[in-house]
Amino acid sequence: MFIQQLVNGLTIGSTYALVAIGFTLIFGVLELINFAHGSFYMVGAYFTLMLMLAMGGNFVLAFIISLALTGALGAMMDHFALRRIRERRATKDAALISTIGIATVIDHSVLEFFGSETKSFPAVLNLGKITVGNTIISYMQILIFAVAVILMGLLTFILYKTRIGKAMRAVSQNMDAAKLMGINVNFVISFTFLVASVLAAIAGTMVGMYYQAIEVTMGFAIGMKSFAAAVLGGISVLPGAMLGGLIIGVVEALGASISSGYRDAIAFAVLIIVLVFKPSGLLGKKHNNKV
């Protein structure tokens, strides 16, 4: 039974990791806690579902369009809301509050438009499951885990091996110096938001597919845990998002099997304990200084 709980936990954890990856990207590049990330996660899932229904069940096309729409939405949020705040050299808090505002607008718009009931997400991939002894593992669970790993690898590749990825890292370390390199910082930042929003939409769609249900509050519900996962792993370190997500998922599953009421409390307690001993997170670097 323990192994089954482990599998349960790794699945839950993979869903957290999927969300945490995009979140960590934005924090890593901009030192900004993007409260709207959960909303993009939710919107991505809704776009996919609605497009799929409108196009007679064509999942792949719906998915691709949803990614494009959500990515565009993220880039627009930066372009219209956050850029001005940056240009006026306002404090980081102003940007953070702005993301809270945008999250509220998006959540309520979806609520108005689609209603608060849970919507069922058709089973797009009927992959089946395998039974190993007493443990059941569905292929969908394996897929989610795999997608999280692949996305993390992809993002790491972009950041370290592409021109724009290097620009993103430069911007994260010193925005003015980056400008002096001829980097169009505003473009790079909007691009970062585009990528993070696409990641969020992928996460939202995959989770919707797995549980076969989506609802307006799904972003908010998973937001807290993913944030904790990102912090646990080391908030600007990408592999940290994955590691943090998996750990919180497993701890939560094992905690729930002991006492379901305290499942969240146990997960957050672990987070606090780790932070007491290693404030920068499990994989975080000790110094976060800039010259």
Binding site: I12, S257, S260, D264
Partner: peptide, 21 residues
């Protein structure tokens, strides 16, 4: 009897595994 907190999560698999056992 497994208790769950409404709205906290939609993954009940740990509780269900308990019951299955």
């Amino acid at each position: 009897s497994e208790q769950f907190i409404s709205g906290q999560t939609k993954d009940y698999s740990p509780l269900i595994s308990n019951i299955k056992a």
